[in-house]
Amino acid sequence: MDNILEVSDLEIMLSADQGTVDVIQSVSFKLAPGKTLALVGESGCGKSVTAASILRLLPRELEITRGSILFRSPDSGEVTDIAKLAPRGSAIRDLRGNDIAMIFQEPMSSFSPLYTIGNQIGEVVQLHRKVSKKEARDITAGLLDKVGIPDAWAAVDRYPHEYSGGMRQRAMIAKALSCDPALLIADEPTTALDVTIQAQIVELMQELQQEFHMAIIFITHDLGVVAQVADEVCIMYAGRVVERGQVRDIFHEARHPYTRDLLHAMPRLGNLEEELVAIEGNVPGLFDMPTGCRFHPRCAAFMADTCNVRTPDLTQVSGSHIVECHLYD
């Protein structure tokens, strides 16, 4: 296995009072070392659940029921199936924050207000590296300096509420980088930030990716960011990957009607006359999934007796470009 991560046929079920229902179905993707994969889709399409499952951070009511999440340790070359690990066991804890790190959407609430930033980053450093408290503190200050926090040596002893939103996201990135991870999962890291700060954070992540040679899974619904950072893109809809390919495949050769709609809904500079087209309807609820192709009620290319009856097969468009749609069966 050359890839750092291979997710195949992943299925995640939700147990609720109304019964069990799948939240994620037949999701597969691969990620090579040092590359960036973007998971794209509307809210509720399952991209955050997919990301959380890689670190087994799913809430109790969500369970991986099928498929594998293979992770290859860059140091030992050893391959682990994360889907088989106990979610509260020590094996997954050794990976968390060490080989695989994660940053979250809301920098305002991702740190406990009761401890200093230095304490919370130093905690991860001490968990995975054999260092003293003093050394952990030095490492933490170095990290804060690296992610562009001014006066890092004083910032170590500050509390989260003394940081601005952008600074907190930088601190979150510093925490994620603290043990030099091979894979970074970024769950909408820029969504809660101002536009100018968003650009800074994306730039910072790209610089650090070069320096640390990390693979990144970037979860977003912002196609502008995708075009800027991603090597590969997975378009998700209602818990399934409907199209995936290289970033140029998606932006220039989009096949799935949903991908095309997403692209038309994105504003582009320089095209002021062009009208934005909203996608009609909403992502279906978990308990009223449409039969057949899950997108068919909203689809402009809907074919009666086909789309609403059968789930489409995966079709290979070219090399790595794959689409799941009856138009290409």
Binding site: L55, L57, R93, D94, L95, R96, G97, N98, A101, M102, F104, E106, S109, S110, F111, S112, P113, Q120, E123, V124, L127, H128, M172, K175
Partner: peptide, 10 residues
């Protein structure tokens, strides 16, 4: 969120 974020640290 801060609990999940801390759990993600291992």
């Amino acid at each position: 969120m801060y609990v999940i974020a801390a759990r993600a640290g291992g």
